[in-house]
Simulated scan of single mutants.
Amino acid sequence: MTSTTGTVCPHCGWPDGAEPFQIVSRHMTAAGGTVWTRCGCGSLQVRVVDARGMRIVSRGRPADTGTRSGTPCR
């Protein structure tokens, strides 16, 4: 996963401030909370929610569809 400070998903262009496609899990912390989400393109994101607002601090790449370890699924 790579850190991000962008305002849109680098994989599909979905705005970071928009509602995520899917909420995977939520965890409360002393400072606010952490929300794991999945973008419409499949990218897993870690969102931190605290007094400063919401920001994406890490995100993965979308999963390759139809392949596994570089080999087509059969």
Rank of each mutant, 00 (worst) to 15 (best):
S3C: 08
G6Q: 13
G6Y: 07
T7R: 04
T7W: 05
V8Q: 06
V8Y: 01
C9I: 05
C9F: 03
C9Q: 03
C9T: 04
C12D: 10
C12N: 07
W14H: 12
D16I: 10
D16L: 09
E19K: 07
P20D: 08
Q22T: 09
S25P: 00
S25E: 15
R26N: 04
H27A: 14
T29G: 03
T29L: 06
A30S: 12
A31H: 07
A31F: 03
A31D: 13
G32W: 02
G32V: 00
G33A: 09
G33M: 01
G33P: 03
T34W: 04
V35G: 02
W36S: 10
W36P: 00
R38M: 15
C39S: 01
C39Y: 05
G40W: 05
C41E: 04
G42C: 06
G42I: 06
L44I: 13
V46F: 03
R47M: 02
D50E: 04
R52M: 03
G53V: 01
R55Y: 06
I56Q: 00
I56K: 00
S58N: 08
P62Y: 06
P62T: 02
A63Y: 05
D64Q: 14
G66C: 04
T67V: 14
T67L: 15
R68L: 13
R68G: 10
G70L: 07
P72R: 12
P72M: 08
C73R: 14
C73T: 12
R74P: 10
R74G: 15
